[in-house]
């Protein structure tokens, strides 16, 4: 994810815009900007309805859904905690690339916390918008 953050210019150079979608309350946005230095547009989907509609993996939604907190706490107690990435305060749940026609050019749903889309993959998908 950090790569995307640093390479927003590479994505904008294709004529596209990069949006971050989070899942906290609206106040999460200011904290996110402060902690990550993210300069671009950002929105949030507290209901997780968009996450689900975007076809993100069940495991991702389950991780985020407050109603699943009980099982998360139990998992922590068992020592099954996800490995944290050093110096990386956020992880991808997935990436969706959409053209003005409404066509989904590319869709990546992370299987694991280290299963992230790369900038070259995204730029390649954007190139198909003009094909």
């Amino acid at each position: 994810m950090v790569q995307l953050h640093r390479e927003i210019d590479a994505i904008r150079a294709t004529g596209a815009e990069l949006y971050v979608i989070g899942n906290g309350g609206p106040s999460f946005i200011a904290g996110f900007r402060e902690q990550t230095g993210w300069p671009g547009p950002i929105y949030t989907d507290p209901s997780l309805a968009v996450y689900r509609a975007a076809g993100l993996k069940r495991s991702v939604v389950r991780t985020l859904d407050p109603r699943a907190l009980g099982s998360t706490i139990r998992a922590f107690a068992r020592g099954a905690r996800q490995g944290r990435t050093q110096g990386d305060t956020w992880q991808q749940g997935g990436v969706l690339v959409v053209a003005p026609t409404g066509d989904v050019l590319w869709h990546h749903a992370s299987e694991r916390s280290d299963d992230n889309a790369t900038v070259p993959q995204i730029v390649a998908a954007l190139a198909t918008a003009h094909a």
Binding site: V95, L96, V97, V98, P100, S113
Partner: peptide, 15 residues
Amino acid sequence: LWRDRPAVLVFIRHF
């Protein structure tokens, strides 16, 4: 978000 130009939506899993 994608009306005028392609949009890349990055969904955060964890923060």
